[in-house]
Design a binder for these strands. Structure first.
Lengths: 110, 110
DNA sequence: TTTGTATATTGCAATATTACGATATAATTT
DNA sequence: AAATTATATCGTAATATTGCAATATACAAA
């Protein structure tokens, strides 16, 4: 059907999946990496950086924003986007937890 | 168009996006968390766990496997799936790096 | 060897995503 | 105010994803 059955999963599982999904496109990875590499962060720079059309970049920025991965401040007639550390820290914690867990039961399986 | 323009991004960006995308669905998050929670790991258990039909679960397992997030060993007429720590460590490292980077330039932007 | 059990594959309908031209909005400059 | 600049939204075509019934495969047990 193409429709995800979110009702069968926990809130946390759905939230985690949404965060990961938002990062599941190279353009959005590139945006995050670009925002990480610069101090100033204006949307126009991202459009120039990405080799995608401006509406496409705008759409990707919107998805990152909806997921809570970036935040945008209006700054004159431009918009300053930057990474939201809350989401990043959530994901950092998530993978640290899995990694620690795997470390503990090394060679217990497969 | 619906087709991702991978040629505009680096190999690493595309690879990272594929890993993230594989985790961008609650069923696949649930599978990873289930594999983490148990010592034995047989596909049938996952089907019982998930409230999704067997072909659907099989498809999600395939995607996780293609992404390198899990590996499967044939064990009799069942298959033993478990988490591949290499991919998890890659993700852990990725988010640690971003997190560290954000820490450094605290309040530099937005 | 037939029957059962476990998993994968195929085929397809419903829905979502990607990309972008055209256009809208909103602040800035002239 | 008109023109310019920066970004968002709309509409739409192409493609991808999700989910599952039906079926195939492959091993195990009787």
């Amino acid at each position: 059907m193409g429709i995800t059955k979110t009702e069968f999963f926990t809130q946390k599982q759905n939230d985690t999946a949404l965060l990961m999904k938002a990062l599941g496109h190279p353009a959005r990875i590139a945006i995050i990496e670009y925002l990480m590499s610069v101090d100033a962060c204006i949307c126009g720079d991202i459009v120039n950086e990405l080799a995608l059309a401006q509406p496409t970049v705008s759409q990707h920025l919107k998805e990152l924003k909806n997921a809570g991965l970036i935040k945008g401040n209006i700054s004159g007639n431009a918009i300053c986007y930057c990474i939201d550390d809350t989401a990043i820290n959530t994901l950092r914690g998530y993978f640290l937890e899995i990694s620690d867990n795997l470390e503990k039961k090394k060679n217990m399986c497969c």
